[in-house]
């Protein structure tokens, strides 16, 4: 009995050895396959065969930020349909004058949301001069008043307007 222990190869031992080896190979292949699936899912197996270096999340974000900044830079003075997009002001030959005179102190939205006649705009300028620290507009005043009263003149809206059908968002009430 003890003699048999040292006989080699022993058929029983060999069978056990082969069985273990088969299992080992199966597990290794499974693990490798799982890793491959994990690494390339869901981009697909085609990525196995190219040598691209895929950017990190940080790099992607950086790239997106650059793109956004470039776009913002390009859009800085973009004009569409006669409107200077960044400020929302009507774009004409007096735009730069208006932008330089008014927006250092307040938003262009304060201009674009208001409507007044020539006299009304002059009154607002006088009020800003009297109380808000606006200086004398000198020779620029006529052009400024012209711009404002031309592009931001009052609409005749009557004593009360219809509800604005354009802006109502109709919805089914549950």
């Amino acid at each position: 009995m003890s003699k048999n222990l040292f006989e080699y190869p022993n058929q029983q031992f060999l069978d056990l050895y082969v069985r273990l080896l088969k299992w080992f190979v199966f597990i290794v292949i499974s693990v490798v396959m799982a890793c491959l699936l994990y690494a390339f899912w869901p981009t697909g197996m085609k990525n196995l065969f190219d040598n691209k270096v895929y950017p990190s999340q940080e790099q992607l974000e950086r790239r997106e930020a650059q793109r956004a900044m470039n776009q913002a830079e390009q859009n800085w003075d973009k004009v569409e349909n006669g409107i200077h997009l960044r400020t929302g002001l009507v774009y004409d030959e007096n735009f730069n004058l208006i932008n330089a005179t008014c927006t250092p102190c307040h938003s262009a939205k304060l201009i674009t949301q208001n409507r007044a006649t020539r006299e009304g705009w002059i009154d607002m300028i006088r009020w800003m001069q009297a109380t808000q620290g606006l200086g004398d507009l000198g020779k620029n005043e006529p052009a400024i008043v012209q711009y404002l009263s031309e592009h931001y003149a009052p609409d005749q809206i009557g004593r009360r307007q219809n509800l604005d059908m354009e802006t109502i968002e109709w919805y089914e009430l549950e």
């Binding site: 304060l110 007044a116 009304g120 607002m124 009052p154 004593r159 307007q161």
Partner: peptide
């Protein structure tokens, strides 16, 4: 916002 003639200020 609804006044006519319009009044200056936030609408």
């Amino acid at each position: 916002k609804e006044f006519n003639p319009p009044a200056k200020g936030n609408q």
